[in-house]
Computed example of a mutant assay.
Amino acid sequence: MKKAIFTLAIGDNPMYRAAVESFKVYGKKIGADVIVSDQLHYKIHVNNPKFDASPAWSEKLYISEILKKYDRVLYLDADIIVTPWARDIFSKYPDLDTVYMFNEGLHRDRSEQVTQINAVLGDVNWPKESNQIVYYNSGMFLVSKETGLFDKANIEEMQAICNEVKFYDQTYINYLIRRDNIKSVGVEANFNRMQLLGHDDYQKADFIHYSGRGYRQKVPMRELKYIIDYCDMFKDSLSEAEILKFKQQAWHWYMLKQYRKTKLPIPLLSAVFGLFHPQHKY
């Protein structure tokens, strides 16, 4: 059986580079190829969206092409760390006719998104669990050819919803599961450990998802927190020089964000912000 891990990583965000490295370590351990999209294959126009939206989110459709060569694909957002102790999700969830995702609907009310997409693409029935609408997070999902998840998906429908529906790509995948009667099962939280579950013991998970604020707490930027955690988790396999480079790149990324806000010179910004966050400045 041919297995692939797929992600989208465009640009030089150090978090993306670390994520891909963690995926490669995991892929080698479980016998899966890692495929990275560093350019977009689908043209979508995001114009005056009602909610935060990116044209890059449509790239999940590319999984339909990958499934022409691979039997199963694990999709991971590039703000996920696959920890060195992660279990083999392919063997943990083996049914080829089933899409496996984490049901965030148990923890957040997503009925608004259901209403939004039904209004554009037509009504479908959404099941409930514990009296909450079943709504999966698409930062991680495991899909096989046999599921048919993307058989009827198309960029035209994504275009129709991208300016109208919150989390348009994620909501669209949930919609496809309902409309096309795709079998789906919710995975345990450790395979998509999100901040909405709190901070306790999150570092023990298999896949840690740094969406939103990304566990940053007192760290000023999620990319900084991500790199701190990544370097700590992989300290046994990273050299001191590699760790230093990752942390320098993360600090520079933080400074670039401040530069876009202030247009002040980066050396000045680094000196000033270094006074407030000396433990993160490299």
Rank of each mutant, 00 (worst) to 15 (best):
Q248N: 11
K281G: 01
D206R: 02
K257T: 02
L142C: 12
F90S: 14
K225E: 09
L106C: 03
W251A: 01
R216D: 00
Y26L: 01
I44M: 02
G105I: 08
H280T: 03
Y226W: 01
Q170D: 14
E112I: 12
H280I: 07
V165Y: 01
D33P: 04
G139Y: 14
F23T: 05
E59D: 05
T171N: 11
E157D: 10
E188W: 02
D180S: 15
T262W: 14
F167C: 11
K128G: 11
G139H: 13
L275H: 02
F23G: 05
I5W: 06
Y254G: 06
I208K: 01
Y282G: 05
K2P: 09
P84R: 12
P14S: 15
V185S: 05
K225C: 08
I35S: 10
K225H: 09
D123Y: 13
Y70P: 07
H107L: 01
D95Q: 08
I161N: 05
D71L: 02
I228P: 00
L244E: 03
Q248R: 13
S91C: 05
E188K: 08
I227L: 15
E129Y: 12
H107D: 00
G105Q: 13
S22D: 11
I30D: 08
K28N: 15
A271G: 10
W57D: 07
G139V: 11
L176K: 10
N181V: 00
F141R: 09
Q195S: 05
Q39Y: 09
E21M: 14
D33I: 02
K247Q: 15
F6M: 03
R213W: 07
Y210W: 12
S270H: 00
H41L: 06
E240Q: 15
I243M: 14
G139N: 12
L142Q: 10
I228A: 00
E59Y: 06
K43V: 06
Y259M: 00
M233W: 00
F167A: 11
L76C: 11
W126K: 13
P94K: 09
G186W: 06
A250S: 04
L256E: 03
D71H: 10
M101L: 08
R17C: 15
V20L: 09
I66L: 12
A205L: 13
E65C: 07
I227F: 14
N131P: 10
Q132I: 00
Y215C: 04
L40I: 08
V46D: 04
Y230C: 06
N192A: 13
D232G: 11
I81A: 01
L269C: 05
L8E: 00
Y172T: 12
S184N: 06
M101P: 03
A78E: 07
Y42I: 03
L256C: 05
I133M: 05
W251R: 04
Y226L: 03
K261M: 10
I177W: 03
D200K: 09
D109R: 11
L40C: 11
Y93Q: 15
K204G: 14
E21W: 13
D77M: 06
L8Y: 14
L264W: 09
